[in-house]
Design a protein around this nucleic acid. Structure first.
Lengths: 146, 146
DNA sequence: GAAAATTTTGAGAATGATTATCAATATCTA
DNA sequence: TAGATATTGATAATCATTCTCAAAATTTTC
């Protein structure tokens, strides 16, 4: 797993550093979406002194490398999550437009996946895009905000 | 059409003002997604002096009222578009992760719509959310950025 | 229709997330 | 090991968005 990533880093002319490893570890442990600040705090809890700028830089890098997905829940900050913890856990998000809470769902993803693959192929061809990922967001009000 | 909106404004204890009308007009004319700044500039071109804060306030209000949809293309700013120019024109977006360009697509939306409705119902029940809208984003690299 | 109540607006200050700068370190390569 | 390249940290800078508050506009009430 790590060897594969290392290759991926090399391909981007980037190096696998302790700091980057620590960030990846955090996402593997938490297995949920985290904001830059949350990552920063979790790193400090582990007694790893990493500057905020470095956190941002690396979240950006890891996203560009396809290791993380960047999410936006409309709360003014970006969130990140592991792109592929496991193909079986593929999921999307339900976002409360009042409190900003975001819930993962993975209902019907099998069916969804088939459909989206077909769509992705069609769109990639038609608009000359090399599509790398997708996100579906459902917006509404959660129980507490109604 | 306007009468209906007026009712909608009353329901929210809000007033239909010239400024709000002007913003709605812009979206009807342009028929595409616009950032707050773009709306601001378009208003000035029409010789309507509207403060930036007011533009933001109203874009927010119109979004909450369901008249506009808020979009995020990962370029650090929010974008807005008419929620329903016409049901037939329902569409989603293809976003280039390098240059930020966003293309509308409406391929397979019929089929998509049916599927999403079913999913929406299921999710709303399971997670106790009153779902109001959804967005699908495909991310990748456009022709020019590859 | 005039006064009172409520909402909206504008200008600029404030906020807060993210990015840029740049010198010091760390890592890789020849 | 030397030289080249990439990374980091601290802090300043940026930029979209929100807040503040007094003035203006609109609606409601009498």
């Amino acid at each position: 797993m790590k060897a594969e990533w290392k290759k991926q880093f090399n391909r981007f002319n980037k190096r696998m550093t302790p700091c980057r490893q620590a960030i990846i570890d955090i996402f593997e442990e938490k297995r949920k979406h985290l904001s830059a600040e949350e990552v920063y705090i979790l790193l400090r809890k582990k007694r790893r002194k990493v500057g905020m700028a470095t956190v941002y830089r690396n979240l950006d890098l890891l996203s560009q490398m396809g290791l993380l997905h960047r999410l936006n829940f409309g709360d003014g900050k970006e969130h990140y999550e592991m792109a592929r913890i496991s193909p079986a856990k593929h999921h999307h998000h339900l976002v409360c437009t009042r409190c900003g809470k975001a819930v993962d769902y993975s209902e019907l993803v099998g069916e969804e996946h088939e459909f989206l693959n077909r769509l992705e192929k069609k769109l990639g061809d038609k608009y000359d895009f090399s599509i790398q990922s997708h996100q579906i967001y459902f917006y509404g009000l959660c129980k507490d905000c109604r």
